[in-house]
Amino acid sequence: MEKELFETDVVIIGAGPVGLFSVFELGLLDMKCHVIDILDKPGGQCAELYPEKPIYDIPGMPSVLGSELVDLLMKQIAPFNPTFHFSSMVQEITKLDNVFWEIKTDHNEVFKAKVVVIAGGGGSFLPKKPPIKEIENFESNSVFYSIKNKEIFRDKELAIVGGGDSALDWVMNLEEIAKKITLIHRRDQFRAAPDTVKKIFSLIESKKIDFIMGQVSKLSGEGGILESLTCKTTEGDIEVGCDSLLPFFGLTMKLGPIANWGLNLDENLIMVDTEKFETNEKGIFAIGDINTYPGKLKLILCGFHEAALMSQQAFRYVYPDEKLTFQYTTSSSNLKKKLGVS
């Protein structure tokens, strides 16, 4: 993959509600933002875990759905036109000199920015790894939790596990190129788009794929190369020959590479001060659920407050020679112009 270079004022890691609102606060102070998130959409937990659940403690909003809050924040930050980089995970942050940080993602994107804001929430959403004995021995050759290049499955015998959209989409995607696909799911109901489910049933009926109702209990093979797996079913154990296993059990939050960035942590949370919400590295801030300080509450509204105060200090790094004057959006013609409402 070719390297892509970006230069900006601020890189925000995490597009959850707090990351999004940072774009607004930083934007009012004329700072341009790039926002990176591992998910394929904005909203973080609000989008991934509870898009349909009402939130009752956003000031001024007696009840708002996770998805509604995300939509409203996207609308609120639109005047500042941030650049989003979805499905990307930040791997490294390195100090370039006294002014700039370099941020690298797993998609070969490289950012040069004066300020980094970590709004990583509960960490990175990563695929769940089923706790099957010795699964880690097969991970480098035969077990795949996500798929970057489907060609590696050409003429292979695949076992795909799960009953959601990811599992079923990959069955359909790989059906033509794989030698054989066995779909394994614990029940004969699937939780996916109705059209997808219909297609899967017809693949099973026409015997283009095998379906086993059961759960994987054991992997067998030599030297990290999978040869077969054992499936626990109501009719006893079934042995399935396969050379690749693709388990799709949804996502879980893990701290991930954040732990390697040289920041002071306390129980997997980033320690910050309560004036600027800055980490032990000047120019790297942490706001929202990912940070900790005496009295910290993991509330979206606290993250919003942290975003506002963080922006004041960020301004001093981005515009070291300029004076910062405090203004209100209600009355400042300057701010109203930036918001496109003057």
């Binding site: 089923p130 959601g164 614990r186 109901q189 759960q215 059990f249 949804g250």
Partner: peptide, 11 residues
């Protein structure tokens, strides 16, 4: 809940 149990292990 039944749908979400698909994402648990050893159900």
């Amino acid at each position: 809940e039944k749908d979400m149990l698909d994402f648990a292990f050893d159900v």
